[in-house]
Simulated assay, not measured.
Amino acid sequence: MNNSTNMVDFDLSPTVDYDNFAVPVYNEASSKFYSNLVPPLYSLVFIFGLLGNTLVVLVLIGYKKLKTLTDIYLLNLAISDLLFIFSLPFWAYSAKHGWIFGNAMCKILSAIYDAGFYRGSFFIILLTIDRYLAIVHAVFALKARRVVYGILISGITWGVAFLASVPGFLFFQSQQGINYWICTSYYPSRKWKEFVMLMMLILGLVIPWSIMAFCYIQIINILKKYRHERKQKAIRLIFVIMIVYFIFWVPFNIANLLNTYQDTFFSCSSEHDCGGGNLTLAIQVTETIAMAHCCINPVLYGFVGEKFRKYLSVFCQKHSRFFPGLARPILERSTSSYSTTEYNISVGL
């Protein structure tokens, strides 16, 4: 995921030893966007993502007590987003002032950044499958949806995400630019760059989107058999989840794919001919949008759920000095909503 985020000025990187795309293309628009707009945008993502995911963690641990498989997955998603978010201040600072944190931190934070990207996608898949089992295979779910299984699967998921982040640790390094140091990728060959790109595309988009589409189509087919006033709301929420995931992640993956295979798509002999600077800007913009998804996750997978809102209102009331005027609206909304979780597609919280 770091193909562009960690760069400061794209004309400052050293020459890479492969193909005709050896010299990164400087683009004034991308340089201005990265140094002027990325720091405040990353700061907003950090603030809202930190607030939303911290509330999810506190409510799940302090009030819900992690009683269900869904609780386990949602907690892991929130923790994953928090770890990802904690790396953003470093990238925001380096976008404006250059990389001053050393080579070790460059590698570690790049790996954390990439692992957060994969973990987020993986736990969204698990939440989707959990919903699918609970609604489509309700009898089987009574045996399969156990907390111990959730803990085991979550551990495996963290391990897979760690392995997927290894290229970020290996291929990112702190390098001397013309004016200051930068933390950027340095692939030993074009094949490695293509491999990392395809891995990110398959693990971060193709597999999650395919599973979500299959599971939610099956869920919708089940919901259509029931007559209830909240059925349409549940179906709309399903479409919102899928559309939001599509909007946040597809543009970034397309931009990254075009950048990796630009000589194939555009039939050009050099990155200058392909308009590499414009692709760099496209990656920067779409990646910033994609990372904002960690601010949306608490809303889609936590706050929308009726039970979660009730626990959240209790939490806000108990800490009313930190959340003035927030507890009562949450409580009123949750007590007035339909209490049955059959149509509560927001993971039944």
Rank of each mutant, 00 (worst) to 15 (best):
S31C: 05
K32W: 15
F33M: 05
Y34P: 06
S35C: 10
N36V: 11
N36E: 15
L37G: 09
L37K: 10
L37F: 15
V38N: 04
P39Y: 04
P40H: 10
P40E: 13
L41G: 08
Y42N: 09
Y42V: 11
V45K: 01
F46E: 04
F48C: 11
G49V: 03
G52Y: 00
T54V: 14
T54Y: 09
L55H: 06
V57Q: 01
V57R: 01
V57G: 02
V59W: 00
I61P: 07
I61N: 13
G62D: 14
Y63E: 15
L66P: 10
L66C: 14
K67R: 14
T68P: 05
T68H: 05
D71Y: 03
L74G: 05
L75K: 02
L75Q: 04
N76M: 09
I79T: 11
S80R: 01
L82S: 08
L82Q: 09
L83E: 13
F86K: 01
F86M: 10
S87D: 14
S87P: 11
L88P: 06
L88W: 06
L88R: 04
Y93D: 13
S94W: 01
S94Y: 00
A95R: 00
K96N: 12
G98I: 07
G98Y: 04
F101R: 01
F101G: 01
G102N: 13
C106E: 06
